[in-house]
Amino acid sequence: MELKLKPFQWVKYAVVHPIEGFEDMRWKKAGSLEISFLIIFMLFLAETAHERLYGFQFYSSYDKIFSIVPYIVKSFVFFGAWVVGNWSVCTLLDGEGTMKNICIYSSYALVPYIMQLFLCTALSHILIRDEYIFLLMIQITGTLWTALLLFSAIRSVHQYSPAKTIAAILLTVFAMFIMLFLMILLLSLIQQVCIFIFTIYTEISVRG
């Protein structure tokens, strides 16, 4: 089969061909980093919309304060940790994927999940509580589809066997935890240092 597709068509192709799509992409050396970044940005928008624009009949939020940080963490930070974690794990496990390819393939796999978030947010303004089952169905379908795609993406990008892919994914999640732990540790240490410097500054400025 001849595959001459534009960059955006590749996204569609990968999403609707969960088993072979990423293999074909790898064979054709397709996939664009720009689109990948765009998808992650859409993930960020979708997470925020899902939290803030959801229909009121299903959900109510604490409107007194709003912080964008949790949504940044949910999208950019988690994805970044996934890519770095997967790259470091799979480099040790004879994976063939480069960091760039891991980033591209993983982000393409997230498309159903993002679409599910947007779709649920939009439908939540049309449906009532009795029809919540439809939202739930969409949510489950989107999430499972993304899980399947992610599995397929990791398998193709590193050319692993299915069992090894599962092991790699589990190890990646473990690596993500370690990274996040270290980041929090670093953050609190920096905070301590800042407080220390500020204390010295206060001391000197008051005495001087």
Binding site: G55, F56, Q57, F58, Y59, S60, I126, I128, R129
Partner: peptide, 14 residues
């Protein structure tokens, strides 16, 4: 902040 009443009112409005 009563999503229960909102749900009923929304159903009627829809």
């Amino acid at each position: 902040d009563s999503s229960r009443i909102y749900n009923k009112a929304f159903e009627g409005w829809r």
